[in-house]
């Protein structure tokens, strides 16, 4: 008995976590997937009826808005954060004396809750007392900036706040990437008289492809899961103009009491995330095994 215990202790130690993950992650995903194929509304029903919920979902104008917003927000958020992050990283890579100090400033938004970020930007973008008023005081009498309450533009305010929060982090990833490029190649290029901009565009940036990919994965993951920022900044409004899949799911689950819609939208979110993450994880793990 004692021998058996001693031999199997590693398995016994990890068993609770294993079963917890099995139930709380995989079992729960299975439950949600099951519910998404039923007629569940306020209470769960367990008779499978096919794709009714998914039909309802894709017929819903609100879900269409949420998906469109995810596309607009995701595209702009990832693109702008990557460009901004890369530019700052390159500028910061020029033997700047106070680099550590500046880096601390650029990165602090990542420590904040998205609710705090949303609250701050909601105030800055306040039509009337916010940035609009600043420009009016400076003499631009006709300046208007009402994106926050304008259904056509409100989603761009989410981009503004999201980029502010995440671009410093992208900068940190890129800076680490720039530093990991083989310095010998750069020295050789300099000896050959290759201009600085050419060294960046032809040598350094192409060799950073894996870092671009990881930055993309991280940002895409953040974008698809975005929930807090929208809630704090616009509350999904005006109307449902800034709904994202995550807020749609939450509304269906907790205020509309429509379990079927909540479950099917959650499953779609998971499929979208996994279609981005799984190929990446797979290639990462394979690379590791090759080494």
């Amino acid at each position: 008995m004692f021998k058996w215990l001693e031999k199997n202790i590693p398995k016994i130690v990890i068993a609770p976590s294993f079963f917890a993950i099995l139930v709380f992650v995989y079992g729960f995903i299975a439950w949600t997937a099951w519910i998404s194929f039923t007629k569940s509304r306020l209470m769960p029903k367990y008779d499978i009826v096919g794709f009714i919920q998914y039909d309802r979902l894709f017929d819903s104008p609100r879900w269409e808005v949420a998906l469109n917003n995810l596309f607009i927000f995701g595209f702009l958020f990832i693109l702008i954060a990557m460009i901004l992050g890369l530019i700052i990283a390159i500028f910061l890579d020029q033997r700047i004396r106070i680099e550590g100090f500046l880096r601390t400033i650029y990165l602090y938004p990542m420590a904040l809750s998205l609710i705090v970020t949303g609250t701050a930007w909601k105030w800055i973008l306040n039509p009337g007392l916010g940035i609009e008023n600043v420009f009016k005081n400076w003499g631009f009498e006709n300046f208007t900036f009402d994106w926050l309450v304008n259904p056509d533009y409100a989603i761009y305010t989410v981009v503004i706040a999201g980029v502010w929060q995440a671009s410093g982090f992208v900068m940190a990833l890129f800076l680490a990437g720039l530093r990991s490029v083989d310095q010998e190649i750069i020295k050789a290029a300099k000896v050959d008289g290759v201009p600085t901009t050419k060294i960046y565009t032809a040598i350094i940036i192409p060799s950073m492809a894996p870092i671009f990919l990881s930055a993309f994965i991280v940002l895409a993951h953040l974008a698809i899961k975005s929930f807090d920022l929208v809630i704090a900044l616009t509350g999904g409004g005006p109307g449902y103009a800034t709904d994202l899949p995550a807020t749609y799911m939450y509304t269906m689950a907790f205020s509309r009491g429509d379990l079927g819609q909540a479950a099917s939208s959650a499953i779609i979110m998971m499929i979208v995330i996994f279609s981005v993450v799984v190929p990446y994880l797979y290639s990462e793990l394979r690379n590791k095994n090759d080494q």
Partner: peptide, 17 residues
């Protein structure tokens, strides 16, 4: 299995939780 669980959108476990 543990690693994979890091990536799920939590919306997918909210209802059963």
């Amino acid at each position: 299995l543990l690693l994979f669980g890091c990536f799920i959108p939590f919306q997918v476990i909210l209802l059963p939780m």
